[in-house]
Design a protein around this nucleic acid. Structure first.
Lengths: 150, 150
DNA sequence: CTTAATTTAGTTGCACACAATTAAACATTA
DNA sequence: TAATGTTTAATTGTGTGCAACTAAATTAAG
């Protein structure tokens, strides 16, 4: 006759509250949503922004390399990259030394996006409203878990 | 003349490595992928599993309540719930006291899924291969950040 | 050199996510 | 109570994610 959540077969391990997966899933989406208004001004989606972070740093990467770094496969990347190609922000060409590979490069308009994006990290950090130390600690912890699992 | 990543305009704040968002995004997808083979045996997707976690605990919830708890809107939930209704796992009916609301309830087949799901949390925990204390600490930290931002 | 295996992108199909809009039911207020 | 505003789902359209499959190029084995 207890005043339980209303089920007598309630398994604490099966409660949303006690999952690790859910806050990861929800936080990931919330942070993506925090980026959205900033990225909208650049006409970029969040995964497209991640691709550009890599291209701004490396100039050229194959689809395979992008997939390894972002943990995304060609089923996701190919249509995404084709949309960026249509906007003339990136180039796609076969590697002449290995025709299986497609090399993604920055076009001038894509390179110029960097200047407009460079304030985004600070603006996001301000939105999060977290102490810098907590931010760094969490980032390192999540990165460690990520490389351990990948 | 330094041996930089190959760009002279490289902004550390714009490197994938230094983002908090990326490990969250990638970890979330990796954990979803870890659930996939277990959920496949129940013919469930990961977001559908989250809906059932709530329904097993609360028996009945409106679409609005599900959306508040999962941070999802009706554009995501309505088609997802209709698929579960087609499988005869849940019921969807208007609240007679407020015809705007749709009440989602468990049907017998949906309730019986719980017995088959109850080993999943342990199996996932084993896959993660993390000390229990780390798991709990991370879960609490992410939940705190989530409620702070939401 | 030829066959078999592997690697790499692309394609297809399905299920989210979410912004934007619509429509019905309910609440408020003049 | 009539007009206005709010709440709640549903709908539409776009863009991921990802499993499964295909096809072309390369490599390895015999």
């Amino acid at each position: 006759m207890s005043n339980q959540p209303s089920s007598d077969v309630s398994n604490p391990l099966l409660q949303l509250e006690n999952q690790l997966c859910f806050p990861l899933y929800a936080l990931s989406r919330m942070i993506t949503k925090a980026y959205q208004p900033l990225l909208q001004e650049l006409d970029l989606t969040y995964p497209q922004y991640l691709v550009f972070l890599l291209l701004w740093e490396h100039q050229e990467l194959t689809v395979k390399e992008l997939g390894e770094k972002l943990l995304l496969d060609s089923g996701t990347l190919t249509p995404l990259l084709k949309r960026l190609e249509q906007k003339q922000w990136i180039s796609r060409r076969r590697d002449p030394r290995d025709e299986r590979s497609v090399i993604i490069g920055l076009l001038p308009a894509g390179r110029e996006l960097q200047a407009r994006a460079c304030q985004i990290p600070e603006e996001i950090f301000a939105k999060l409203n977290m102490p810098q130390a907590d931010f760094e600690a969490l980032r390192r912890q999540l990165n460690a878990l990520l490389t351990q699992l990948a």
